[in-house]
Computed example of a mutant assay.
Amino acid sequence: MSCISEQLDEIQERIRRAAIAAGRHPDSVKLIAVSKTFPADAVLQAFKAGQKCFGESRLQEAAPKIGLLPEGLDWHFIGRVQSNKVRKILPLFGSIHAVDSLKLAKYTDGVAGDLGVAPKAFLQVNIAGEVTKGGFAPEDLDRSIEELRFLKHLKIVGLMTIPPAVEEAGQSRVWFRKLRELRDEIVAKHSIGLPDLSMGMSGDFEIAIEEGATHVRVGSAIFGMRDYKISGELG
């Protein structure tokens, strides 16, 4: 884990260059350090190196890890959201990246009201229509947006997608572009604010930035290869 600081610096520099090349300010892109499967000690090292935004996808792993770390970190839940775990997710995470249906959005909004929290949410879009992935179909999102925009507690801030697996990173560009275009169409049609796009991971985040990503999810390029047997204990 001794190289975490250096790897963070390298990723931030790549983000800076990609943003500038796209005519954007580097501060318009937030790096989510995906810490799933890595121990709390690794997260602490990244925090000491200046990283404050982290992503987790499994509640059972994340909850004890979060409890061991400093308060005030910006935690993003990036995994599939199960309705029976929403009540436990919301107190821990300020942002949720995979609200994949109107039903789940309404339920999460109600739980947020019960708990007195106002989480940010990204709507997951199955932009390529893959049968193995969840998320709104683009046409369903367009039909649902009027109900989504008036939720009282869940703040819809943007769209999220994971593109199909590709052999070369450049092949993901078409899907990132389609998500941005869909967002722009919905904003224009419904006069709704959707400023954020969560897309791009370790292998393709620079291309995602070129296509408008505001949040990129990078794990292995910061922390190294994952060991799914690692616990969350700090020490």
Rank of each mutant, 00 (worst) to 15 (best):
E139R: 08
F93N: 01
L151C: 13
F93E: 05
I145R: 02
A22T: 08
V125Q: 02
L148I: 00
G203W: 00
A42R: 07
L151I: 11
L123S: 06
R177S: 14
S101H: 03
R24P: 01
Q12N: 14
G193D: 15
E168S: 09
Q45M: 15
I222E: 05
V131C: 14
I156W: 08
A49S: 15
S57N: 15
A98D: 09
S35T: 06
I186M: 08
R149N: 15
D9M: 14
K155L: 11
K133Q: 12
I162Q: 11
D204K: 04
L182C: 04
M225A: 13
A63Y: 08
G203N: 08
M201I: 04
E185L: 13
E130G: 09
D204Y: 07
E206T: 10
G55E: 07
A46K: 06
S35C: 09
G116Q: 06
V34L: 08
V111A: 00
V81N: 01
L141Q: 02
P70G: 12
F77A: 04
A33Q: 01
K133R: 11
G79W: 00
S202C: 03
Y228E: 13
K48F: 15
T161Q: 08
L197Q: 02
I186E: 08
L44G: 10
R58N: 12
A40L: 07
E211P: 02
L179H: 04
L69F: 10
A112D: 00
S83A: 08
I20G: 01
G50F: 10
G200E: 03
K152T: 15
T37I: 07
D100E: 11
V34C: 09
I78M: 05
E210K: 14
V34M: 12
L179Q: 00
G50S: 12
G135S: 07
G50P: 09
D196V: 02
D140N: 11
E139I: 05
I207Q: 04
W175N: 03
L73I: 01
K120Y: 10
R87A: 10
D74I: 01
L194A: 12
I78G: 03
I32K: 00
R16N: 08
P26I: 00
E139F: 08
E130R: 04
A121L: 00
G94E: 03
A63M: 13
